[in-house]
Write a protein that binds this DNA or RNA. Structure first.
Lengths: 135, 135
DNA sequence: ATGGACCCTCATCCCACTAGAGGGTCAAAC
DNA sequence: GTTTGACCCTCTAGTGGGATGAGGGTCCAT
């Protein structure tokens, strides 16, 4: 499999695959006569794992940890569990923040004014943050 | 007002205030004999506006636009309105994405296994993304 | 005159890629 | 046999929005 094939199969970009190699997330694949990268099934699986983890919002460092854990079949599952729980907590916090933002902006409603001088959106931006926004 | 004062008053960091000056978001303030930046009320208002907009999730480029609009009191309010609406749409999209993520991870539930080999969290990460995650 | 709080510039780093320059490889079509 | 076009290579630099640190200068109170 050349890099374009594996990129298509994993949904990653070619540059990203090379980037992951440079970062040490995957082994450097063997090369063809023309110096093309040639990947096998194990690369495909590992890259799929990485892509999936990234899509779910884990950072690359977290992915590194997950890979390390996944690489040891006899290792404990508890750490993975903890990471998942912690990740959900983080997402929940982000959701709460975004909801607060959304409501704050939506609360302005539409502006009836025609000129900036009377625009209360601009006014809303000019006053210091309300209590609800101490993120 | 020295930079530390205005930073405290706006809630920005000192480095961020200098950064905004370099980015041309605020005028370079006059300097004291000892080459300290000296800010006045207009800087305070402008930085408050920027801080508030950033807290609400606008990018610096959007803040630039908002400032440009706000600077023209006779300008039309409609553009500001449009930006607010568009921003809400973006936030709504992010919220939907995050909800999907959260639900996806939460759906895994807790893992009963003790070793990685049987851990279904790792398994969930190894399989390609489900349809719900085509972000 | 000395200590500490504050300030200055400039350079480098962060994340997770992305884009571009400037070239090489390979298969098929002409 | 050559030319086209798709694909690949390395290397460098840029993105946003700052954060951090080095190495110094200033100011004020004790």
């Amino acid at each position: 499999m050349k890099i374009g094939d594996i990129a298509k199969r994993t949904g990653l970009k070619i540059e990203t695959v090379r980037f992951y190699e440079g970062e040490g997330l995957i082994d450097a694949p063997r090369r063809s006569g023309g110096n093309y990268r040639l990947y096998d099934q194990s690369h495909l699986e590992r890259l799929t794992f990485i892509k999936r983890s990234r899509d779910l919002g884990f950072t690359l460092d977290q992915v590194r940890d997950l890979l390390r854990l996944a690489d040891d079949p006899r290792g404990s599952c508890a750490e993975v569990d903890a990471m998942a729980v912690q990740h959900i907590d983080e997402i929940d916090r982000k959701l709460a923040d975004l909801h607060a933002l959304r409501d704050e902006i939506a609360r302005w409603g539409q502006c009836d004014a025609t000129t900036i001088a009377d625009c209360w959106l601009i006014e809303a931006l000019s006053s210091p943050a309300s209590v609800s926004l101490l993120l």
